[in-house]
Amino acid sequence: MRRRRRTDWAKWALGIYFVLFLIFLYTPMMLMGVLSFQGVYGAITFPFRGPVGLRWWHALFDSSLPSSHAAEIQSAGAQSLWVSFAAGAIVAVLAFTLSMAFRRKFPLQGLAFYVIMLALMTPGYLLALGTQLFWKFMGIDTSLWKTALGTNVVWGIPFGFLVMLAVWNRYDYHIEEAARDLGADQKRAFREVTLPLVWTGIFGGFLFGFTLMWNDYDRTVLLLSGSEASTLPVQIAGLTLTTAIRPDLYALGMATTLLSLFTIALVLGVVGVRLRLRATPVHKVEEEFGLGGGLEVESEAPPSSAS
């Protein structure tokens, strides 16, 4: 009895801890969502001022409303989206190809590994400063699509690379050898077997590259040129610094969060469908032995074992 009671306490304690954890994680986000529905006099603090309304959500999309930042936010959003896609794609390709080299041992492999990882360890702001100095020294102007993108790719590569190392760690090289054995040349084996088995890892690299660029402020802010449209994080930071913070930023936060959730759901859905296709293992002795004569050609037809 006593023993049972103790286990129950542990369960309750852990349950409460979990709930607190969830509150800690999600309350700020929900609070932001709630505050975005304030009326026209709304401010950025609780409680509400004025009626509930969609004023700030309108302001997010309609630049004709007074003091709306819709135009800047929209152009920054589009810019962010494209440059993040580019970062994701480049990180995916480079991290994947780099990891391919690490499938075999080569001289100075350990050093190469640490050099790749260095970009992950270096503080973002310092990396950006260094990059800025370097380009200035080379006489090349900073710009979003060159220096900012480049630095973010350098930052993203170790993440994508680590994902790929994990993938190769669980990868059965014999499968590739089997393909070679059955008549596939190196290119064919790569296309028919390797790529279909590791694309989820490559996609993981893409997501890292995308997300890091999408969220980055430290690096991008130093490596943009003043004249061009900036990315969303830089734009938001600019708004919070130069103008009063208003609930339309909350609406923006909510909108991007919802978009992220939708994307994640979509990806999980696609991956889930793919994995379900491959079903769960069957380990039934009856099925094993129910297959009758098997290899003996002269034996009668085996009983149906398809479940």
């Binding site: 491959r278 380990h283 099925e287 094993e288 004569g293 290899l295 398809a306």
Partner: peptide, 29 residues
């Protein structure tokens, strides 16, 4: 058919038992 698995031709390898996978490997080579 020779290895007695024609009924399971639409399955994925993970949904097979060890003995069945063995037979597929044989048929494949």
């Amino acid at each position: 058919e020779m290895v007695g698995l024609e009924q399971l031709s639409d399955r994925y390898p993970r949904a097979l038992s060890g003995g069945q996978q063995q037979r597929v490997a044989l048929a494949r080579v």
